[in-house]
Design a protein around this nucleic acid. Structure first.
Ligand SMILES: [Zn+2]
Ligand SMILES: [Zn+2]
Length: 824
DNA sequence: AGCACGCCGACT
DNA sequence: GTCGGCGTGCTC
């Protein structure tokens, strides 16, 4: 070791070290030596291949690191990217994220990058001649024989595949032992990351006429079709001249055309979106919002809650603001709720900004997603638009981040890194001195509270565009309907309005937030309910597929088998879903054309498109749907909205049930009368006096909030307290309970470790989860409440320690869900 | 997460 | 004795 400060020569720069977050569950980052020859290529945001223990793993360069003390740094093996996958400015954001959601930094970064860039190291196992001999001579034991036989027939196999094929009882150590004996060879290879971008063959005309003989018709036709200046894809040319592939090489040789490959941006939607430069005149309220937002651009951090009623034209305000941001050289991120198909918002952004928008849509393949990502990295697309994960878009100088429908729960990721993209948007803007705009007709209680305490500025748009009135709401009390058995839940009032709407040749929407035919089938013979074999829930009957389905694990059972416990065919289909409503409608209005929009119809190829088309082209009269219809699409011809049962979302053991109900009702009611004709809403409920229902009916957001905030304050729920849910899962019921209880006990003990804990932290539970078993996994949960932010953070970190120390490689697991949304 | 090390019971 | 099961701990 040379002495510090002593330089080996004038030309020798000091040794350089990098701080690397490896894609492994480590709490700390690691320091690696940067070899001289790689030094010019090393940049924060690039992936590196590094040695770690006996393996090689991918890591992410965070920046330079100080000279290591107390350990020897190993050298990085390779730099994997030409361009950084994220800008350096995002490093502090990742650190904050990893800390806040208690998730390893390297895995946090991995989660934020598009899948498809993640290199995987594979251990390839190959049989040796000695191994073959040993197998023949019977020198291998039973377990070894099984492996060797597989290897003999299948050839070199990845270790994890091999273990799967060998089945139960197969272990890594057997393979390693065989390696020691010389029966097999193991070498490590990097699995190809699907990193190549897509190119397409293009043809360009160089001459106007071909010298070829006239009988070669296609050859002349090709030159006719090719544009005089500019190029054409081979694919497009083939449509006009099917024999084109046969001619182009000869034609290129003759100097008539040029053939070349060009990188293309896959159109995620199939159909091209024509540019639309129309700018609607802003209403005075829209103008105020626009001026406020634009005035804040480029002047540091600010968060604005744009509370605009349904149909108030928030999108137009967004478009104008984005335009202004681009003029100032700022880039933009637009977050939209996760939906199955391209939304109105995406369509309008693409129409207005075209190629400048990178769409990170959930329907993209890994390759397509990566294309869009790299366009942002290269600075070709200053606007990133997409669902939750788009908050990680690698834009360099974000000036504006828009979160549309900010109350939507799809902004919370419910696995692994359990982040809330709306909160992260605010944090990213805070760090990068940008403006966040949170838009919604029904803002979350949390955002509304942040306005009250001055963290956000509130801007309201109280009127709809074109002075369209709000729909008139009729409340139907389901407790005293006289519709006989009332089985279908389509009351006389609703029927009356449906008839009227159909007579006027207008469209109606019926909302019921539950898919399937019946969610509570019971057996009349044995009296049992029909439940899932793997989960503690009842199965839902799906008429269309003729089976009982579990909505949690996907388990499916044929109806023809009858009751699972007694085999009886006498089943009563209790409870109702969209399929049943559709059924009743068909018998009630046999002449009407009825569509259905839920996860089942959307899952079928083209199903969603055909329903939306039917609504747009007025070929559908009535559409029945789940909350799916409240999201992302405009139906200007709908004049009647019927809420079949408003109470469904209210019964959950979840402190947000009320908020969810209000938002859903207000959103679905807002679907009525979006076009020129005024709308009407018929709302059926068993709880006509409940404040969620009455305030939703009156479209009185403030009244709802005041009442809800009172309740939250009393019971110390967010926004007046912080929450974290510890979730325990395990295959064995007893073991899971014992595990949960032992961690619970430790957490209670921990309260006494610091005065601040005792004073401000509450441990509730652990208890078995409301759904105590899903997909054979038993579930427990424990709720942690904190009244003091700082103390709660410190407490959670300690809880994580406890979990780490108690959890084994096998057996039950525990995860921390910070700011939980799904409480079930 | 992997992967090694190390400690114990049941096989040659 | 040794093989292999799995609990514990580390990875720059
Ligand atoms: Zn039965
Ligand atoms: Zn199930």
């Amino acid at each position: 070791m040379k002495e510090p400060g002593v330089r080996r020569g004038a030309s020798q720069p000091p040794e350089a070290y990098l701080e690397v977050a490896v894609a492994a569950p480590l709490e700390q980052t690691l320091t690696y030596k940067l070899p001289q020859d790689q030094a010019p290529l090393a940049e924060p945001g690039k992936r590196v291949l590094v040695p770690m223990g006996r393996r090689r793993v991918t890591g992410y360069i965070l920046g330079p690191a100080p000279k290591p003390e107390g350990f020897k740094a190993r050298s990085i093996l390779d730099i994997l990217d030409e361009l950084p996958l994220f800008p350096e400015a995002m490093v502090p954001l990742f650190r904050w994220l990893a800390d806040y959601y208690i998730y390893p930094l390297g895995l946090t970064i991995k989660e934020s990058l598009p899948s498809g860039v993640n290199h995987l190291e594979l251990a390839m196992v190959k049989i040796t001649p000695e191994g073959e001999k040993a197998l023949e001579a019977g020198q291998a034991n039973l377990k070894e024989q099984r492996f060797l036989e597989i290897l003999l027939t299948a050839g070199a196999t990845a270790q994890n595949q091999l273990l799967k094929k060998a089945g139960k009882g197969a272990s890594v150590s057997t393979i390693l032992t065989m390696q020691r004996k010389g029966f097999v060879e193991i070498h490590r290879v990097m699995q190809k990351g699907r990193v190549r971008s897509k190119t397409e063959t293009y043809i360009k005309a160089l001459k106007e006429q071909s010298d070829a003989p006239a009988r070669q018709k296609s050859r002349h036709k090709i030159l006719e079709i090719l544009p005089k200046d500019g190029d054409m894809t081979m694919r497009a040319l083939k449509k006009e001249v099917p024999s084109a592939p046969r001619w182009i090489w000869e034609m290129e040789e003759a100097g008539e055309i040029q053939v070349f490959e060009k990188e293309v941006y896959r159109d995620p939607f199939g159909e091209p979106i024509p540019p639309d430069e129309t700018r609607f005149t802003l209403t005075s309220e829209q103008e105020v919002a626009y001026t406020e937002i634009v005035g804040a651009l480029g002047r540091g951090y600010k968060s604005i809650l744009l509370h605009g009623v349904t149909g108030s034209g928030k999108t137009e305000v967004y478009l104008r603001c984005v335009e202004k941001a681009l003029e100032q050289g700022l880039s933009v991120i637009v977050l939209v709720p996760e939906i199955a198909l391209i939304s109105q918002m995406q369509r309008r952004f693409l129409a207005r900004f075209g190629e400048k928008v990178a769409v990170l849509h959930s329907g993209l393949t890994d390759g397509e997603r990566l294309d869009q990502w790299m366009r942002i990295v290269r600075g070709q697309a200053p606007i990133a638009l997409g669902a939750r994960s788009s908050i990680f878009a690698p834009v360099k100088n974000p000036g504006l981040v828009i979160v549309d429908e900010e109350h939507d729960e799809s902004y919370k990721q419910d696995s692994r890194l359990r982040y809330q993209a709306r909160d992260l948007a605010v944090m990213r803007c805070h760090m990068e001195k940008a403006v966040t705009v949170l838009g919604s007709a029904t803002p979350s209680i949390s955002s509304r509270h942040n306005c009250a305490n001055g963290k956000f500025q509130k801007i309201s748009i109280k009127n709809r565009v074109a002075e369209r009135p709000f729909p008139e709401v009729t409340l139907v009390d389901l407790r005293n309907t006289t519709t006989g058995q009332n089985r279908s839940l389509l009351t006389d009032v609703l029927k009356h309005h449906l008839t009227e709407t159909l007579a006027k040749n207008e469209q109606a929407l019926l909302f019921l937030n539950r898919r399937g035919f019946a969610n509570f089938p019971v057996c009349l013979e044995c009296g049992g309910t029909i439940t899932c074999a793997h989960c503690d829930v009842s199965l839902t009957y799906h008429q269309e597929d003729g089976c009982f389905q579990c909505h949690y694990c996907g388990f499916c059972q044929d109806i023809t088998k009858g009751c699972p416990s007694c085999g009886s065919r006498k089943l009563k289909m209790m409870g109702m879903g969209t399929e049943k409503v559709e059924d009743s409608l068909r018998s009630m209005f046999p002449q009407a054309i009825i569509g259905r929009l839920d996860r089942d119809t959307a899952a079928k190829k083209g199903g969603l498109v055909s329903v939306l088309k039917g609504l747009r082209e007025k070929t559908t009269d009535i559409v029945v749907g789940t909350q799916m219809i409240t999201k992302g699409h405009d139906f200007p011809n709908i004049t009647l909205v019927g809420v079949v049962c408003a109470d469904l979302s209210m019964g959950f053991p979840d402190f947000r049930a009320g908020e969810r109900t209000f938002q859903l009702l207000a959103q679905v009611a807002g679907r009525a009368g979006r076009g020129e004709k005024p709308g009407r809403v018929v709302l059926q409920t068993y709880n006509p006096e409940h404040f969620c229902i009455t305030t939703a009916c009156a479209n009185d957001y403030d009244a709802f909030c005041n009442e809800e905030l009172k309740f939250r304050h009393q019971l110390k729920y967010p926004p007046f307290a912080r929450l974290a849910q510890i979730r325990f899962t395990g295959e064995d019921s007893k073991e899971t309970g014992a595990f949960a209880n032992s961690i619970g006990e430790e957490c209670r003990k921990l309260l006494w470790a610091e005065k601040a804990f005792k004073n401000s932290v509450q441990v509730l539970g652990p208890i078995p989860s409301p759904i105590a078993r899903i997909a054979r996994m038993h579930r427990w949960q424990m709720l942690l409440k904190g009244l003091d932010h700082k103390a709660f953070r410190a407490y959670l970190r300690q809880v994580n320690r406890i979990i780490q120390s108690k959890a084994g490689a096998k057996g039950p697991t525990a995860v921390i869900d910070v700011d939980p949304v799904n409480m079930l």
